[in-house]
Amino acid sequence: MDKGLYIAMSGAKQAMTAQQGHANNLANVNTTGFKADLHQARSMPVYGQHFPTRAYAMTENPATDFAGGSMIQTGRDLDVAVKGEGWLVVQAPDGNEAFTRDGGLQIDVNGVLRTASGLPVLGDGGPIVLPPASKMAIGGDGTISVVPLGAPPEEVVVVDRIRLVNPDARELGKGSDGLIRFREDIDAVLNADPALAGQPVEGRVAEPDGAVRIASGFLETSNVNAVGEMTEIMSLSRQYEMQVKLMGTFQENSESSARLLQLS
């Protein structure tokens, strides 16, 4: 039997894998600050001592699309959107810093500023703690000012500044928890010695960038291009059918040759 069947199978299997990636982008079409993952296929030639025909398919996601989403106006003081390039810094559960553009912030019972998923947002000196206030405003450079409870309106106190960073996009990647991190940090966690599991890995700290601006009262939508993803899914589905068709052809070929060799 022609082993080409396995090549067609690898094509069909990789089409299904890529389909899952696109399905994830579409599932997150309404997720605030979500960044779409790109997928591509690569041919993996495996040539031996014969006619070079064996090139298997391999799906990979080379990068995450860091293009900005569109801005939606919410009017809520604690909603912030990063204008242009740049990131908010949050403290991930492992204690290291990670980046996000999901700016639907909230205040917990102790006054700590957190993201919607509960991660502390970092300021110039660690997590930001807000005092009880009657009014609060977040400025374009991330400065948080409040009017403390009981104080006259003209008594504005600057509490802290949301740390805004803008590392080179080529150095960034998406971690397995969906947060953006330095690629070297992601690799360090993945390549960590299993014997040291559970021990914190010291992550790299991004430098604040004074040029990054945020807008309060806005949220950034997901940057998933829904039409593009749908088209991609349709096209992958057809590619998959072609591979299955090839598998059928290989089967027919092998049946024909079996018939030729039948004795009766």
Partner: peptide
């Protein structure tokens, strides 16, 4: 995200995969 194939993994003794495959789960 599920990491199916790690970026930077060895594809042969002296070559590494330039990019991996990690797929979100929704």
């Amino acid at each position: 995200y599920q990491i199916d194939r790690q970026p930077g993994g060895l594809s042969a003794q002296d070559s590494t995969l330039p990019s991996g495959l990690q797929i979100g789960t929704g």
